[in-house]
Design a protein around this nucleic acid. Structure first.
Lengths: 241, 241
DNA sequence: ATCATAATTATTGTATGATAAATTTGGTGA
DNA sequence: TCACCAAATTTATCATACAATAATTATGAT
């Protein structure tokens, strides 16, 4: 416990607030000391005296880190490093300001497309027979839905979008990276909820989905990559001007 | 202003704390109302009376959102939706618990590889001549550094790692997606700082870099994708068992 | 002695009030 | 109109108190 703990937080830039500085400091400590999830961080009062600030400041810093999914604390227990679950909810919040602007939305779309294209090789390799069947079932459903497009525009469009999301999610899930999958899930969520990009149900898209599904079924990495890249081309493209 | 503002936050689950609930609520409001960065959110006192809680709770909620880069506030001004810059620092913090476990580190590596592979097509298309020159310069530097590997193991390894990061960063930068680039930057940072994966300076890696750089210089998307995928193969691979 | 239960303590969650510092706003004079 | 000063806002921090909940200890029965 001889940790030279008279850090008065006067180390670095003075511009920021005490709480922000403390949050930064605690984050660095966790990172440098390689504190694993579950590791104790002492109590709020401890930290308050250690850093020579009031408990208010400590609580604000901790609140910030709590929001970031870095620490948790329960009454009577004290503080500890948070588990790595529910990263999704953190990311979902952190992206909120991004989706306000059209350029931000485009950036997210681009990231989503990049992640899916980057995963396709692995997905083709690891995908199971069941998942292949599901992909083809979805394509079949899409065809069926497309027929009703004139009679019930609205619902058809929603159903199609739903299927579209499911299609891409299955591909990502097949790549067996829980983090990659979570990440993609959040992005797809925004993609689905917001009206920012309408992959309008059209025969062209349908054919593309079909070709992708078939390429995956044949476990042909090159073809799958090629067709997927084509399919995601409009989202991948850099922001013009 | 007829916003039916007697939200007493008693809407949903009662398990969470008031501050967490309020943070969630505010986040949703920003998202649903499409509030752009810079939009005013009123003062802490306003929110306190609106939601029927003390200013303490409001400050804690705001502190959390501030940490997530969703809102900012300055003395005398009030609160507003945050700008979308410095997303990097948010992500950097949010990933801290992830890097504590080896599985988490692997997941991050995987995500990084996925992003780079997903970006390579775009990068090849958009990369400038200057950037191509820089890539080739880096490969040349790597060759030079490799010769000293026996005389000064430690420093050689660091220099090589530095060059390796730079190499990959240039590729990402060429894809012209600021979000994608920022994202990759943070991941590469962890990749670089942590000792979790040593791309040991070896002739095999060097050749791979060279082949990638040449393929990019020739603007051959397929070859570049192929060589890059090979190069990142060990990091891309799913966690065994 | 052991185990279940009650009492106590530790710790976070919330509230209130006060002061300091930074920013905006409004006014006043040249 | 412009520069400058004063007042009002508003966040940042502090101190204190109390409630709620989890952990720890003490107690008592068997």
């Amino acid at each position: 416990m001889k940790n030279s703990m008279d850090d008065t937080l006067s180390g670095s830039t003075e511009t920021k607030t005490l709480s922000a500085e403390l949050a930064e400091h605690l984050c660095e400590r966790i990172r440098n000391d390689r504190l694993a999830p579950g590791a104790r961080l002492g109590t709020e009062s401890d930290l308050a005296v250690q850093f020579g600030v009031s408990r208010t400041v400590v609580r604000e810093a901790i609140g910030s880190l709590r929001g970031l999914g870095v620490v948790t604390g329960r009454q009577g227990r004290g503080l500890c490093v948070a588990e790595t679950d529910n990263f999704s909810s953190v990311l979902r919040k952190a992206l909120v300001p991004q989706v306000a602007s059209s350029s931000g939305l485009h950036e997210l779309q681009q990231l989503r497309a990049v992640i899916e294209i980057g995963s396709i090789a692995l997905a083709v390799e690891l995908i199971t027979f069941e998942e292949i069947i599901r992909l083809q079932t979805i394509v079949g459903e899409m065809k069926r839905v497309m027929k009703n497009i004139k009679t019930d525009e609205e619902r058809t469009s929603n159903a199609y979008k739903e299927l579209d999301c499911l299609f891409h999610q299955i591909i990502l899930a097949a790549s067996h990276g829980s983090f990659v999958k979570q990440f993609h899930g959040v992005l797809l969520d925004y993609f689905h909820a917001g009206e920012f990009y309408n992959d309008i149900p059209c025969n062209k898209c349908l054919r593309e989905h079909e070709k992708i599904a078939n390429a995956i079924a044949e476990r042909d990495v090159d073809k799958a990559t090629k067709y997927l890249t084509e399919h995601l081309r409009p989202q991948l493209k850099a922001l013009e001007k």
